[in-house]
Design a protein around this nucleic acid. Structure first.
Length: 127
RNA sequence: GCGGAUGGCUGGAUGGUCGCUGCGUUGUGUUUCCGCUUUGCCGAGACGCGACGUAGAGGAAAGUCCGGACUCCAUGAAGAGACGGUGCCGGGUAACGCCCGGCGGGGGCAACCCCAGGGACAGCGCCACAGAGAACAGACCGCCUGACGCAUCGCUUGCGAUACGUCUGGUAAGGGUGAAACGGUGGAGUAAGAGACCACCGCGGGUCUGGCAACAGCCCCGGCACGGCAAGCCCCACCGGGAGCAAUGCCAAAUAGGGACCUCGUGGUGCAAGCCAGGGCGUCUUUGGCCCGAGACGGUCCGGGUUGGCAGCUAGAGGGCCAUGGGCAACCAUGGCCUGAGAUGAAUGACCAUCCAUGGUCGGGGCAACCCGACCGGGACAGAAUCCGGCUUACAGGCCGUCCGCGCUU
RNA sequence: GCCGCCUUAGCUCAGUUGGUUAGAGCACUGGUUUGUGGAACCAGGGGUCCCCCGUUCAAGCCGGGGAGGCGGUA
């Protein structure tokens, strides 16, 4: 962890955009129809809302394929953890992002690697 | 020491950095309302953003298999029926299909474990195949008596013995079939045999004794008659209205402003109220009640729309510990102290370090068990969803206690 | 979360009061026919009756527990 240079701490979001959590089913369905980028430990879906609000919204979801309730909860916590560090600095204002968990990998993959994965995924879905 | 039985507890620890949700206090922004010393202040509420404090998953939170609390719907009362469930006896409990104690049966050397364990004389039904015979059964091979025929042998020439065949009768000991064959073993008895008889065991019935009871024991009688299946129908006893917090109530938005039913053919008399008769209110009976012109109102259901928010929502048959008393125990009573998750795409965490338990490799010490050091791996099952009481299922390990058998020592 | 339903051959389904060998169609394999293929005809193989325990002489069927799948519900 110490050797990896993850650009998280130093770029504290001074002009931070606020982060909101997606809570409604319709938002998830809209995001699923937009851009996507698969990564080893998760799948990123991204959608430009095309409204004036610059708020970035993030949702997390895990199907039953991920595992039992403990594994699903754990996967969502890890996805929240990387999103909390990466999305405010690397995300695009006015977008909705959805992170989808994958079986085994979301729980077992190294967290620093997953943060790098997320940065790469965010660059891929850039419009 | 080894092997086993059983009861209970626990379910990694500490620290650091960054975060989540509820509650409390507080700061600040927007907005609404009230008052006015009237255009900005006080107070209250809602929403948003912070600060500080505090709390925050389980023994199974799981499966959803039982029992309740609670909410809504239905319901006049009593009885019967139907349907579903439970099933040795007694106790505990709010209740239970749960728990405790006892009884009976089975397993184990034992500690101990397992059992849906009422009724087969209330009735119906089933018992395949095999076998002679399978449910108040039956006689295949056998065994035995008698008659006749035939063969052989013996001789006292018309009898005896033996073998075979046919017929008549007796028998159920033995063989064989089956899951099961109408008591078992031994004796006595007989032509051969048989509970026909005797002893013991089993079975059935009865008196007495002990026990609240299930049941047990002694004695007497019967003399084998009375097979199994009720987790087949059933009988008996007891219990049970239905649905479930996504219940239910409210607000907002959106869609529709629709359809069906309650309201079905009542009659006589009377101006009417009413009375009489008839019918209806979805199992039946008794008894009571309500309704029976049309429309409206209202109610229920269907169809259509919304998948937002608030309440329900966490203090209750609460839980834990201790003491005293009652009880073999489950548990109960009294007193004291401590404790208290409420999320809703669903919080209670992520990462790192050290320690602890544990596995592997290497090195050193030691006769050995083992000890020390280094490195690597690595944390069981599993996540509250209205709340309790149980049951069942999953589970790395660790700790404490009680008991039994064997071995050793004394 | 709550409430229901289902599990039999590779697939879709039957299976009576528990009874002797668990069947049907499609699919598969081999053969006949044909110049070849299809179709047709003939023959054949293939089953942990989802799993475990129990009741019974005997379980796909009866009882209990578990696993997996499907549906409904604001």
């Amino acid at each position: 962890m110490a050797g990896l240079d993850v650009p998280v701490a130093e770029t504290s979001p001074a002009v931070s955009v606020r982060l909101e959590v997606l809570r409604h089913r319709a938002d998830f369905l809209r995001a699923a129809k937009a851009q996507r980028s698969g990564q080893p430990a998760f799948l990123l879906q991204a959608r430009d809302r095309r409204d004036a609000d610059p708020t970035i919204r993030v949702g997390f979801t895990c199907s039953k394929k991920v595992g039992n309730a403990v594994q699903r909860n754990c996967a969502k916590r890890r996805l929240r953890e990387i999103a909390r560090h990466i999305i405010p600095t690397h995300g695009h204002p006015g977008h909705d992002y959805v992170l989808v968990g994958r079986p085994d990998a979301t729980v077992s993959r190294d967290l620093a690697q997953m943060q790098l994965d997320l940065i790469r995924a965010l660059q891929k879905v850039r419009p």
